[in-house]
């Protein structure tokens, strides 16, 4: 479904991605792991068209999307749930959801999807008229996910969904991710620092280090990899 082939991305003279290749299959949950400044966010920005890679290609659904503009990439079917949730704070929860459907013109379908979101994320209904900025972090994460789904994506990219949330809420969020994947057959790329949590739901994982994929394996293998346990999983 999504395929990155030897992608090199530069910020001015900084070589941020040094040949990243990865794939996300249809209906698969894949996690992209790594510490700070390893290139996780740059990978996401490159996929979304926010930065253009200098070489390499991004293929989505059989179509080359390298260098396309962000609105076209949304149209192609990729929606991100951004780091720190990024609500439109003074807009209501409902308006936030409506913004998620920005590129869609099917009013009836949008209304239907809002009802559907109310089912999956009850908070989007109970707080529909409330300014999104007044919600708690966990509630905002729910709204952020619902907002991204309003675009009817084929691939959901989640950037640090666990950041700033209590462990209990992180569990809830990850359970929801699994459910979405099962119910909708949605492909999901989880970009995370919380390697334990991310690998517990993913089928495969990639570990990035200074702009390069250093390990690519199945989730189980990664969880048992001694190098991984030492560096990312907190098991000495």
């Amino acid at each position: 479904m999504l395929q990155l082939n030897d992608v090199h991305t530069w910020y001015g003279s900084v070589h941020a991605l040094r040949g990243v290749s990865l794939t996300v299959g249809e209906g698969e949950i894949v996690s992209l792991l790594g510490g700070n400044a390893c290139g996780k966010s740059t990978t996401m920005k490159t996929i979304l068209g926010w930065v253009k890679p200098r070489s390499g290609e991004v293929i989505f659904g059989g179509q080359r999307i390298t260098g396309k503009r962000p609105p076209q990439i949304v149209d192609a079917g990729i929606a991100p749930v951004l780091e720190r949730r990024r609500m439109f704070p003074q807009l209501t929860v409902r308006e936030n959801l409506m913004m998620g459907a920005w590129r869609r013109r099917d009013t009836a379908g949008i209304a239907k999807d809002i009802d559907k979101m109310a089912e999956i994320f009850p908070v989007t209904a109970s707080r529909a008229g409330q300014a999104a900025g007044t919600l708690s972090g966990g509630e905002q994460q729910m709204v952020a996910m619902a907002r991204a789904l309003m675009a009817r994506p084929k691939l959901l990219i989640m950037d640090e969904p666990s950041m700033g949330l209590s462990p209990k809420f992180v569990r809830t969020i990850f359970d929801l991710i699994i459910e979405l994947n099962r119910r909708e057959g949605l492909s999901i790329l989880v970009v995370e620092q919380n390697a334990n949590m991310a690998l517990s739901i993913a089928s495969r994982g990639y570990v990035l280090q200074t702009g390069e994929v250093v390990i690519a394996d199945t989730a189980d293998a990664l969880l048992n990899n001694p190098q991984m346990q030492k560096a990312y999983l907190g098991i000495a």
């Binding site: 503009r69 962000p70 949304v74 991100p80 609500m87 439109f88 704070p89 907002r147």
Partner: peptide, 15 residues
Amino acid sequence: AIREDQLAAAAMGVD
């Protein structure tokens, strides 16, 4: 939307 959060607006496909 751009005023509220430019990055989020871009992510929704707002040009």
